[in-house]
Simulated scan of single mutants.
Amino acid sequence: MSRSIFRSISRRGLVSAALAAAALASPMLAGAQAFPSKPITLIVPWPAGGSTDRHLRGLAEIASRHLGQPVIVNNQPGAGGTLGPGSMALNAKPDGYTIAQFPMGMLRIPHMQKQQWHPLNDFSFILGVSGYTFGFVVKGDAPFKSFSDYVEAARKSPGAVNYGSTGNGTSPHLLMEEVAAAAKVQLTHVPYKGNADLMQSLIGGHVMAASDATGWDKFVDGGQMRLLVTFGESRTKRWPNVPTAKELGYGVVSSSPYGLVGPKGMDPAVMKTLHDAFKKAMDDPKHLELLEQLNQDLWYRSGEDYAKWAAETFARDKALIERLGPAAK
């Protein structure tokens, strides 16, 4: 066989191989470029109507426009906000069509009881979104005119004074246990599934007080509830006359940042598509207006930075759970 004929055959072989490789790759590329081709489910692990639900529904609506597909909120409350994300980690495909809010309880509950999922290893971290403004409220006609009144009542009647929160191991629960430890009083904790049922219980007089994020805002502004203290680094713009726990000498500051995650093993290209769409939604004026209504701040973190923060927080909160002991559970 002459060299020219050999070179011609070799060239044809290379071209054929290249075309074959392109044919094999094209469906994969098309699949990646086509995402999303159907609606995306966003699991919100709290009942409808609370501050987290209000926030993420608004954010999802804006993100839908950037994704070209609806982002449908699916409320899956329970287990202090860990039921929904935990179920996703165990059951959902890592294809980007099921994502979830990742509350702080995900980094705490595993220190309190064994779980089938791991908070770091079983999730893909998409981006950090926001944090809460936590406050402590009582009914508008309650005898407690200040947070000091509430603490003094607990001091006089150990265990007889109670409060509700959105569940065991959540930030509203643990920050109150930190306050109780600092004040050397005994409080009785009543866990609820989320903000909506907690607010109904407080309005109905079934619990004496409530520790939660700003799902109580309309009740405070309407006079049905009284806001006694907030737990930020400084006083809020919306309720500037209400002191912080830090001001009152309790040394407790909490915002409980949260973001969005998917199951482990997600395609980086799909994660980038989700990240970019939700980041644009976060910066949208309508979203910023919603955050102002909820008295929340942006807490943007890239997926990489969010995963790093989660690992550091998981280690740090182990020490918090151990320090609080049985009160944390």
Rank of each mutant, 00 (worst) to 15 (best):
L291M: 08
T170W: 00
P285L: 01
S124M: 00
H55L: 15
N121F: 09
L83T: 08
Y250F: 12
G31A: 15
Y258A: 04
S256Q: 01
Y300C: 04
S171P: 05
A30I: 10
S8F: 12
S2E: 03
M282F: 11
L24T: 05
A210V: 05
A315G: 05
L187C: 03
G31E: 12
E312P: 06
T170S: 02
D276Y: 04
D141L: 12
L198V: 11
K156E: 14
G13C: 10
S87M: 14
L42W: 11
A89R: 01
V179N: 02
Y132W: 14
A315K: 15
K329E: 07
L320R: 09
A18K: 13
V242T: 13
M88N: 09
G131I: 03
G50S: 01
M28E: 14
V137R: 01
G128L: 04
L324A: 11
P257T: 11
K280Q: 10
A277T: 02
F147R: 06
V179G: 01
V151T: 06
Q69L: 13
L290R: 12
K272A: 14
S255V: 09
A79M: 03
M104F: 04
N168E: 10
V15I: 15
L175K: 02
G96C: 11
E322R: 07
P110K: 05
P39F: 00
G259R: 04
V15L: 15
Y132E: 14
I203D: 03
G86T: 03
A21N: 07
V73K: 01
M1T: 08
Q224I: 02
L294V: 04
G232H: 03
S87D: 12
A245N: 10
S165Q: 04
K272H: 10
E177R: 06
G223Q: 08
D212W: 00
L107K: 04
V261K: 00
V252W: 00
R108K: 13
P119T: 06
G131S: 12
I43K: 01
G128D: 09
K38Q: 07
V15F: 14
L59I: 11
E292P: 00
P45C: 03
G265K: 09
A100N: 07
L90K: 13
R238K: 15
A142H: 02
L29P: 10
S201G: 06
